[in-house]
Simulated assay, not measured.
Amino acid sequence: MSDSSPGTVDLLGVLAYAELTAFLRLAEDAALLAPTLNDRAALGDVAAAEYGHFRVLRDRLASLGVDPEEAMAPFVEAIDAWHAQTRPKDWHEALIKAYVGVGIAGDFYREAARNTTASISALVDEVLAGESRAEFAVERVRAALDADPRLCGRLALWARRMVGEALSQGQRLAAVRPQLAALLVGEEGENLAEIGRMFARLTEEHGKRMAALGLTPGP
């Protein structure tokens, strides 16, 4: 497998568009939903990091002789749909999306990167290394739950809905992008059953993030 193999280009393309849209959505949430200037700045920092990640991926695609726009194009509809279906209504929902959404996406891309070349795997690790910036959300969500425990049920439901939409979109992408699907399941994955097991692992990681937020995962 080379750095410019179809599956690798798909991985870089979907990750690039995910980072670009994350930047745009987080910046919008910071401007419209943050209750204080400090909160606006904190979420703005996360948005800026996402844009930096996008630039790294865009430049790598270009260095491989791939048009970044063409590489991202197959994933626009699915990622845009996920954002449309998970648009936060308030600051607390925005925080959970920043933390849980970034986390589930990172898990997905790491799964795929395990079956790429060493240089691409290192690139994905570099791009995802800054995800800890989103963990500022944990402190704020926990403080909000301490102040009003009634928020727990609503926010837990919101997080489950968001991840459910992400898994659904991911499964659709895997079904229509066979090279990316093959990268996700590795050499041992002969059919979509292995993809199902991969998504089960993603769901387990989601449960850990829910616990970190002080939310109880649903069944």
Rank of each mutant, 00 (worst) to 15 (best):
R25I: 06
E93M: 09
A105H: 11
G13I: 02
T117G: 08
A129K: 09
Q85M: 11
T21E: 11
S5Q: 05
W91H: 13
R60I: 00
S121K: 15
F136H: 09
L24S: 10
R55I: 08
M1G: 10
A147T: 05
G186C: 05
L123R: 02
L32I: 00
A18L: 04
E69K: 10
V46D: 05
L12Y: 00
G101H: 06
F23K: 01
S132A: 08
A71E: 02
L95M: 08
D90I: 04
T203M: 11
W82H: 14
L157V: 07
A144M: 09
E190A: 11
R172E: 12
I79D: 05
A175Q: 14
M162L: 15
A48I: 06
D146G: 10
S121N: 15
A156Q: 09
M72E: 10
Y99E: 07
A137P: 06
S4L: 09
E69N: 06
A112Y: 04
L192F: 08
F136A: 09
S168W: 07
L128Q: 03
R133W: 02
D107M: 14
W158V: 00
T216Q: 15
M198T: 11
A113Y: 10
A122Q: 14
F75C: 05
D59Q: 02
F108W: 15
S119H: 07
E28R: 15
L11P: 03
E28D: 11
R160D: 14
V100A: 08
N191C: 13
F108P: 03
S2D: 15
G170F: 11
D80V: 05
R40L: 04
Q179S: 15
L33T: 00
A98N: 11
E77R: 15
A200D: 14
A22R: 04
V14D: 03
G101K: 09
T117P: 11
R133T: 05
E204Y: 12
F54W: 12
A174F: 14
R177M: 08
R133S: 06
L64R: 02
L123E: 00
G44D: 01
D39F: 00
T86D: 03
G170S: 13
Q179D: 15
G218R: 11
A118T: 08
I79K: 08
L183K: 06
R110E: 10
A212T: 06
A200G: 08
H92G: 09
G218A: 12
L192T: 04
V100I: 09
P68C: 01
A78K: 07
R197L: 14
R142C: 03
A78M: 06
G101E: 08
A175K: 15
A193W: 10
A73Q: 09
F108N: 07
V141P: 00
E205T: 07
P217M: 10
F136P: 03
I96V: 15
P6H: 01
F23S: 02
R142P: 04
A181L: 12
A182N: 10
R172A: 12
L95P: 05
A81I: 02
L32N: 02
E204Q: 12
S168R: 15
